[in-house]
Nucleic acid binder design. Structure first.
Length: 269
DNA sequence: ATGTCACATATAATGTGA
């Protein structure tokens, strides 16, 4: 079973790239982040014409997540239990943003997650990011005994080698101790990151649009797939599709693909 | 090289966000 995760940075800007990706890799489930579209405007047709189901969760032009799957999801959840909200105006309601959607497919609870960026370490958004991760870890603790998969853009580089030049990142978001500790909380709650060990060569998942970062191979590893133990031991391999970052009108992130030995009971019958 | 993209809005230039 092939599960891919990709921060597409606007699904309306490049829907055909996503549809082509499904065919190119024969993807069973594609988790998208930063779709940047409200549900009513989501371009469902090209995915459905390709034979896929679309589960989307978008509230406005920001954030937005989706799960595109060959099989029809058995259960869908928007927001994870305990997910905190945010609004830049503290006088307004701190409403939850469209950063989490899940679908149960072939017995796996699969989440497409877009963790808050954090902006600057002195910004309220940074505290929001940490709160989001703490709440996520608490939810994981309740689900870690079954097959659970968190995919997406975590906006954290857990190790120094996950950025191309650590000296440029000290004091900035994505590499701070509290962010890395929060990521570790997810692991301590029962999850294992399953793609890293298969992607040592092409290890970046993100390249800034600015400063020719892709051309200079100056990237970051901030996208991951974290599986609970009952699923993690079924992982068979992982890869990034670096070709997807080349060419015109690309996302700034690269698709992250993982394979799991999960039987398709329907095909066995 | 902060110097690129994407989205929105009294559509044309600017604000927000990454």
């Amino acid at each position: 079973m092939r599960i891919a995760s990709w921060n597409i940075n606007s699904v309306r800007t490049r829907p055909q790239r996503a549809v082509d990706l499904l065919a190119k890799h024969d993807i069973d489930v594609l988790c998208l982040q930063e779709t940047k579209v409200a549900d009513a405007k989501f371009p469902r047709e090209p995915f459905e014409e390709a034979g896929y189901h679309v589960t989307c969760h978008g509230l406005n032009q920001w954030n937005g997540v989706a799960i595109v799957s060959k099989e029809e999801p058995e259960k869908v959840q928007t927001f994870f239990p305990g997910q905190p909200g945010f609004h830049k105006d503290t006088a307004k309601e701190q409403a939850r943003e469209a950063r989490a959607v899940s679908a149960r497919i072939r017995g796996i609870e699969i989440w497409s997650l877009y963790v808050p960026n954090g902006r600057e370490i002195t910004d309220r958004h940074f505290d929001y990011k940490l709160d989001f991760l703490y709440a996520l870890a608490r939810y994981v603790e309740t689900r870690a005994q079954s097959k659970l998969l968190l995919t997406g853009d975590f906006n954290i580089a857990p190790r120094d080698e996950d950025v191309w030049d650590m000296s440029l990142f000290r004091g900035k978001t994505h590499v701070t101790e509290p962010e890395r500790a929060a990521f570790q909380m997810l692991e301590e709650a029962g999850l294992e990151e399953v793609t890293r060990r298969f992607t040592e060569e092409d290890r970046w998942t993100y390249f800034d649009y600015k400063s020719l970062r892709f051309q200079k191979n100056e990237g970051m590893r901030i996208d991951f797939q974290l599986a609970s133990e009952p699923l993690a031991h079924l992982v068979q391999g992982a890869q990034v599709d670096m070709v997807e970052r080349a060419g015109d009108k690309t996302s700034d992130h690269v698709p992250l693909i993982a394979d799991f030995d999960v039987p398709d009971f329907a095909s066995v019958r």
